[in-house]
């Protein structure tokens, strides 16, 4: 039965998941484009520092892609159930909790797809450049972090989407929009008029709070570098 649930979920999500897998595979390769040394003993062009700084701009894309993958898998998992008023689920000879667990497990298996794509891409990217002395590639650590981030996003949104997908999208979308609107318009444009908006910047505050342990979003702030010392 698990295989059926997995198959149904795959059918539901594959059109959204395949582009994400392609992106996950390509991202590490893109991030090392134009970087790398010539393997010589010394270089006064500071190749190592150039690699570290060159990778810096790509770091947010890794966590954003992981979050996007989690969102797509989670929202698609309950889609058919809600559309068909849960008739299919009710017709199955299993209790609801077991059905929910199977669905969640199926989604968790699907999170492996983009993670494996990134792992392969990261290994290829690391192999494609000559790393100067002192630098090392960490494709496995990056892939594990990527997988954990997808799983986390997926688990949170899966639980929310068990209610309704529409509400989940509204809550999540409104939350993110509010954060940006308050941060960019509220803080930056209205700070001249209101002292209270000057002391605390909503976006800055939110980013600082991501670091809170055991907060769920701490994983987003880890070391996402494919190449480091």
């Amino acid at each position: 039965m698990f295989r059926s649930v997995l198959y149904v979920h795959w059918k539901q999500v594959h059109l959204g998941l395949i582009p994400l897998m392609v992106a996950a595979f390509s991202l590490p390769l893109l991030s090392v484009q134009g970087l790398g040394g010539n393997g010589g003993v010394t270089s006064f062009n500071d190749t190592s520092l150039a690699i570290i700084q060159g990778l810096q701009v790509w770091l947010p894309f890794f966590s954003a892609l992981a979050a996007a993958s989690g969102v797509v898998i989670a929202l698609s998992s309950w889609n058919w159930d809600h559309q068909l008023n849960h008739v299919y689920a009710l017709s199955l000879p299993v209790p609801r909790w077991r059905y929910a667990l199977m669905k969640m497990g199926a989604g968790a298996v699907l999170t492996l797809f983009p993670a494996v794509a990134l792992w392969v891409g990261a290994h290829l990217a690391a192999a494609s450049i000559v790393l100067p002395e002192g630098l090392h590639a960490y494709p496995n650590a990056l892939a594990i972090r990527f997988l954990a981030t997808i799983l986390l996003t997926y688990a949170i949104l899966f639980a929310m989407a068990a209610g309704t997908v529409r509400t989940t999208m509204w809550v999540t979308g409104t939350g993110i929009l509010t954060l940006f609107i308050l941060g960019l318009i509220g803080n930056d444009l209205l700070a001249g008029q209101f002292e209270v908006l000057r002391g605390t910047h909503i976006l800055e505050w939110a980013l600082a709070k991501l670091d809170w342990v055991p907060g769920p979003l701490e994983i987003f702030l880890g070391n996402w570098r494919l190449i480091d010392v």
Binding site: L101, F158, P214, G222
Partner: peptide, 24 residues
Amino acid sequence: AQAGLPRSLAVVLGWALAMVFFTA
């Protein structure tokens, strides 16, 4: 590069289990 990764994984696992509980 791997600093904090085990802790992050434990936190993620904890939250995922909590979500499983709520969903079930």
